[in-house]
Amino acid sequence: MYPSSQDAAKYAPQGYPMNIPERQPYHPPYIPSANGTAKWSTGLCHCCDDPANCLVTCMCPCVTFGQIAEIVNKGSISCAASGAVYGLLLGFTGLSCLYSCFYRSRLRGQHDLEEEPCVDCLVHFFCEPCALCQEYRELKNRGFDMGIGWQCNMDRQSRGITVAPAVASGMKR
């Protein structure tokens, strides 16, 4: 890890400047689709890209949903509160997808993502775990540390600390 530019002066040999690049927040490349919106950074069925999240989502989707909702709501509702509402809807009605599809729409609106492979409510109705995993990966790939919540992410960002983006291993063409 590089020291900050303020600390560089005290570590540099006398008379020699240390040219240390400032770290900038990661923003995935904007890849426009035909209608001017950006593509998702991962596909709907790429759950194996993050096996730990896939396991958590399959065993207890309210945890993943709560983390997504806190970031999408910009901290106005906590992870625990969103996850609890999701869990209650799932337990009593089985239709938690009606609640979570609105968060997918909000996420898409915030990041200008295309509505694919179909309408958000259908994606969540037929493929709820995959949709939650994709949304989680999207936020993670955009530089959010999903485990610490909105406020800690903003504190890190204000201090200039960013999370390194997730990079796929191996060469792909």
Rank of each mutant, 00 (worst) to 15 (best):
P13H: 12
P13Q: 12
Q14R: 05
Q14F: 06
G15M: 06
Y16C: 12
Y16V: 14
Y16L: 14
Y16N: 07
P17V: 07
P17K: 12
P17E: 07
P17G: 10
M18F: 15
M18V: 12
M18H: 14
N19H: 15
I20N: 09
I20T: 05
I20L: 00
P21A: 00
E22W: 03
E22M: 13
E22P: 00
E22D: 12
R23C: 08
R23P: 01
Q24H: 05
Q24L: 01
Q24W: 06
Q24F: 10
P25E: 02
P25F: 02
Y26V: 07
Y26Q: 04
Y26H: 11
Y26C: 01
H27R: 15
H27S: 14
H27K: 15
H27V: 15
P28V: 10
P29Y: 00
P29G: 02
P29F: 04
Y30P: 04
I31Q: 09
I31S: 01
I31M: 06
I31V: 02
I31L: 06
P32H: 11
P32C: 08
S33N: 15
S33P: 03
A34P: 01
A34K: 15
A34T: 15
N35D: 15
G36I: 10
T37M: 11
T37H: 12
T37P: 08
T37C: 08
A38G: 03
A38H: 03
K39E: 00
W40L: 04
W40I: 02
S41Y: 00
S41H: 02
S41W: 07
S41I: 01
S41N: 04
T42R: 11
T42Y: 03
T42L: 02
T42M: 01
G43S: 07
G43R: 12
G43Q: 01
G43K: 09
C45S: 09
C45W: 00
H46Y: 03
C47Q: 10
C48V: 12
C48K: 01
C48E: 08
D49Q: 10
D49K: 13
D50K: 12
P51G: 05
P51H: 01
